[in-house]
Design a protein around this nucleic acid. Sequence first.
RNA 1: GGAGGGGUGGCCGAGCGGUCAAUGGCAGCAGACUGUAAAUCUGCCGGGUAACCCCCUACGUAGGUUCAAAUCCUACCCCCUCCA
Length: 417
Amino acid sequence: MTEPKSDFLRAIVDRGFLHQATDFEGLDAALCKGPVTAYIGFDCTAPSLHVGSLLQIMILRHLQKSGHKPVVLMGGGTTKIGDPTGRDLSRQMLTEEVIATNKAGIRKVFDKFLTFGDGPTDAVMVDNDDWLSTINYISFLRDFGQHFSVNRMLTFDSVRLRLEREQPLSFLEFNYMILQAYDFLELNRRLKVTLQMGGSDQWGNIVNGVELGRRVDQAELFGLTSPLMTTASGAKMGKTAQGAVWLNAEQLSPYDYWQFWRNTDDADVARFLKLFTELPLGEIARLAALEGAGINEAKKVLATEATTLAHGRDAAIQAEETARTTFEQGGLGGDLPTVEIERTALEKGVGILNLLRQAGLSASNGEARRLIQGGGARVNDAKVEDEALVLDLGALNSDGVIKLTAGKKRHVIVRPV
RNA sequence: GGAGGGGUGGCCGAGCGGUCAAUGGCAGCAGACUGUAAAUCUGCCGGGUAACCCCCUACGUAGGUUCAAAUCCUACCCCCUCCA
């Protein structure tokens, strides 16, 4: 592969976003010629997106920054028939209202990363429900069915692996790749989209779309995939004990988001800096060269930069500041998760087990008890030795709140109201 | 439609009449060591509770047999394989 000439591909390659592409040179040339419109598809099964989608979002951001037009395709139509991947076949179909709500939530996330509008390089969001829901089976078969070879479809990884492992593959699933290919064709017709991007697991779908476009409309389409994201320890990106790492502040506070990045595995830091921040590569190289405890500096930069993209500079700085006072000075930062408690209840006295539960630091009294027995619970930084401990107004610190801690990292402020 | 196999805790997977709240692995939580990392070691890991005492809930669903069932019987639901 030669060094790409277009800004976009150079960024994508240099920062580690590229897995494979169809006609890399052709795409490079097209990107040099003028604005290219490209899309990535997203599910709308949840009211927000989590870190697992961040890689794709960043690609769209780079695309826009280098002068091209990003299209966000919402899979509203495909969501309607449920997601057939995995064994969760019976997953509930979502109603129109839920889908609409989810789309609105997702749109808010994208607003942070992309500039939407009507301009030539402004991002737009579309929903494949607009064309999929009106498909007529007979005419669809006649117009497009002839272009799909089952023999060929059977060779795609997504299908082949399932067959080799003798796992069931429903006809519905088998059709997904056709519908996705059709999305590409439709987007090309409607919005002059000529490039589809996605995770490497989407390669088969993307190639199908490229070929369908060529066969039906003689359109020159391109596809590009990014590596599937895993952490150094092999886990899927974006899952933590508390659940998914959401990109919107309603579901995950900027402080927690910052913490997620701060806790990145050493081995992932350089890679993540390239993928999830927009720092210049030279700066990243400098940070990545830090050794031993010094790498913590790089993690803080990663956390602050990544949080800036999702929540804005101010929120990121505040999260960083809170982390500093909490972790480095043993104080309590103002941005820590806060739980309110009735002042009158506190006057009477609240059991520590109960309080830990209310603060969300343990799921049950038993778990809270175990936490204390294991020596992991602290009140105002003092280890709790007695699980029968009762806290009242006397437990308030000089700030008039109680700082509850579970383990080394989980802090909650309890504030009387 | 016929024959066979199977549904066990977040996941994988033992158990196949009492000693089973259920072996083991993974994941998770806490402690130690550190650097809010990794690896390692230790403890915990259904709920209630003063403690491994007891109570409640749990091995697809609903009944039944038995002093006693995740384990046996019956019906039903679901999944898989083979045959038609």
